[in-house]
Nucleic acid binder design. Structure first.
Lengths: 234, 234
DNA sequence: GACTTGAGTTGGTTA
DNA sequence: TAACCAAGTCAAGTC
């Protein structure tokens, strides 16, 4: 990892054109030559970058090109994508630091607990969709992809459940496609749809109700708590 | 911007739990205290991070807590979100570098040319949807949001155009909703739908054709070229 | 390898 | 401010 702190400007040409005026910034060049430009602004997204695989060249500015109006840059780095025509060129006016560190391999991030957990918890606490409900299976396969949860309610009616962390319109569309398909199967029809999420946008809620789906808000902490409690019984 | 290079491990607790085993990494702490942990892996996304607004504390490890089995960490940094319960704790075993640079304000990125351009070009070259076509307007307003382009073909039939850089299934669904709505208006009906994009996924193409929509591939460079040429006439 | 879906998404625009 | 939508999205899993 090469770490540069410098007054610099930059030009990106690829899927779009973007330019950075002169300012003091931090530049990271990774082992795979991918290049990131950071300022104090924004979240983790760099102002500008070039993804690997790419080639990085240090260009010493040609003194013959000197324009008397602008000071000669101290250095120019040009990163060119190996697969596309993307180019990111960084022009350095003053370099405060330029250090390289060998980081070596990284064991990587170990994640625990996302949307998959919501699905697992709801499957194990299936009566949250109504008393007497029974789980058929998670990831119930269909021709157009797996339904998150298939269940049967107290009346014996099949229930297809679409689970999202945040429920938006596209989630309702997805559930619509599943229910349309499932209701063509005489062995399953009629199939109710339930749209379950931690949060549901107002538009999605309206659309879901319009389509005849029930909306179910999931409380992650509460569901986790129930699991923890049930574990304590053993 | 504080730049640290160190052997470190990290624990994140928030919307999920995630941990980083001990390895040599680069840590950036921005002016707003947001903290990013990078390795040579991945693209511009850090392995782990904590977004602003947050508070960062340097903790000198308590020597009384020393576990004879594990070496005492040189330093611990705990970043706590000010608004949520997110916490990111970084434990440093060995620090190779720890420098702070004042970057100052950044003028930010100047972008030029994205999906908006596709829309503008197609509006100006509306005969790409068929000879004799005329533009009604861009961002044609409806109750459920603006249609990208509304036009009239040579036969006088209204045409609703949905434009995407990449055309996926959700884009077809969007166009479906618009056309459904527009076709309820006796002053407009019948309304044809055109799904226009630089690339269209096979599934989206099938769905679009199933819904009776025409698919139109847009060549950005060609459309830009036409514009440039027409500008040269003046 | 192409395609689809989720993300601790992030970021911008508009109601 | 909240909701919706695009992103030079990235990344993981599936076909």
């Amino acid at each position: 990892m090469r770490i540069i702190v410098a007054d610099c400007s930059a030009e990106y040409t690829g899927r779009l054109q973007a330019s950075l005026p002169l300012a003091k910034r931090v530049i990271l060049v990774k082992a795979d030559n991918s290049l990131l430009i950071f300022s104090e602004l924004g979240s983790y997204k760099p102002l500008n970058w070039l993804a690997a695989p790419c080639t990085v060249r240090d260009i010493t500015p040609d003194r013959a090109d000197d324009d008397p109006d602008t000071p000669a840059p101290e250095k120019i780095i040009r990163a060119s994508s190996d697969k596309t025509s993307d180019v990111l060129e960084v022009t350095f006016q003053h370099i405060y630091a330029d250090d390289t560190f060998e980081l070596g391999e990284d064991p990587g991030l170990v994640k625990d607990g996302v949307e998959d957990h919501l699905q697992r918890y709801l499957a194990e606490q299936i009566e949250r969709i109504g008393e007497g409900a029974r789980l058929v299976r998670r990831e119930y396969p269909t021709a157009i992809g797996p339904v998150d949860i298939m269940a049967v309610d107290a009346e014996g009616t099949h229930v297809a459940i679409e689970i999202k962390r945040h429920g938006g319109i596209d989630g309702v569309e997805q559930l619509t496609r599943y229910c349309e398909l499932l209701n063509r199967d005489p062995l399953l029809a009629p199939v109710r749809g339930i749209f379950a999420a931690q949060t549901i946008s107002p538009q999605a809620r309206v659309l879901a109700q319009d389509r005849g789906f029930e909306c179910l808000l999931l409380d992650y902490d509460e569901m986790r708590g129930v699991e923890d409690d049930s574990l304590k019984l053993f």
